[in-house]
């Protein structure tokens, strides 16, 4: 058991190391260095060559790539992503709060979506191909296929314009306390929630249908074991195991990939920061956000792996 856990943790760290190296290499392969990319063509033309060379030396861009890779990886290991080229602000300070805000949004969504999806998925599977299942399955397809910007706009029209219950855009700022931010964000949460419930309920329903068709469930029913025990103690853990990996990847995607929702509601998250960094060509910020997103995928994967280890004794080899 312990060795299985340690192996997975080790492999996760190894993956992170390769990811960091890959992100560095990807920016390295692109034409021009960090300074060339940051400066616009006009600024480049205006600048005397000696000044440019001097700046590159100051930034350490004249050193060989391997040396810079080493410095980059060393920095990453200490959670130091350097400073932005122009304003010389520490990248960590720029990225930290948006990252927290995105995690907050994703966390709020998952915490609300999971129980609802569980109830929907389990009851749909329990009454497989009955009216309830048909309603849930159809609803799930609709909820899953309507794009988030449509749901978002619709919710804004309904709950911010027609009945002004909630603010249409986020009034809190990036560095406000977590609760202030959440209190200001019911509409973005609700927007993502609909798709999330649909997605998670769909996976759980499939897993649960499989689990309920298994031999061990038939044996329990033949033994007259109460149905709630069969559903919740036997079938549900068996259904959750195959759904965990997909859920973890979905949660990870929520953190890094809800750019549309963040823009619609002006939510100060990672997606918005990424858009800002790209338009301002802040290479180091983009690197940090890319790495943070990748790290979240790896970490959530690891968590799912550990949860599977806890739930499925067959994997503890």
């Amino acid at each position: 058991m312990l060795s299985a856990v340690l192996r997975r943790v080790f492999l996760s760290l190894l993956t992170l190391f390769f990811l960091a190296a890959f992100i560095f290499a990807a920016t390295e392969i692109l034409p021009g260095d960090a300074l060339d990319v940051t400066l616009s063509a006009d600024e480049m033309a205006m600048m005397p060559p000696e000044r440019l060379a001097e700046m590159k030396r100051d930034l350490g861009l004249d050193r060989p790539a391997v040396e810079r890779l080493g410095a980059f990886l060393l920095g990453v290991a200490q959670l130091d992503f350097g400073r932005t080229i122009i304003s010389r602000a520490p990248v960590v300070d720029i990225v930290a709060y948006p990252l927290r805000n995105s995690l907050l949004l994703a966390g709020a969504v998952i915490v609300t979506a999971l129980p609802l999806a569980l109830i929907l998925g389990v009851s749909a599977a329990r009454w497989y191909r009955r009216p309830l299942d048909n309603v849930v399955s159809t609803g799930v397809i609709v909820g899953y296929s309507v794009p988030e910007f449509v749901i978002g706009t619709f919710l804004v029209m309904l709950f911010a314009v027609t009945w002004p219950l909630f603010p249409a855009t986020i009034t809190a700022s990036t560095r406000d306390p977590a609760l202030t931010l959440l209190a200001a964000a019911p509409l973005p949460v609700a927007t993502i929630l609909i798709g999330s419930i649909a997605y998670l309920a769909r996976i759980l329903r499939v897993g649960m249908v499989d689990a309920l068709a298994s031999d061990f469930v038939e044996r329990l029913r033949l033994m007259g074991v109460p149905e709630w025990r069969v559903l919740l103690l036997h079938a549900l853990p068996a259904a959750v195991v195959p759904s965990l990996m997909a859920t973890a990847l979905y949660a990870a995607a929520l953190v890094s990939g809800i750019v549309v929702v963040e823009l619609v509601f002006a939510y100060p998250g990672l997606g918005q920061e990424l858009v800002r960094a790209v338009t301002r060509r802040e290479v180091h910020v983009i690197q940090a956000i890319a790495l943070a997103s990748a790290a979240i995928v790896v970490v959530f994967n690891l968590l799912a792996d550990l949860a599977i280890l806890a739930l499925d004794p067959r994997t503890r080899m």
Partner: peptide, 8 residues
């Protein structure tokens, strides 16, 4: 072989 719940 499959009649017992694998996680219990």
């Amino acid at each position: 072989l499959a009649s017992l719940t694998f996680h219990m």
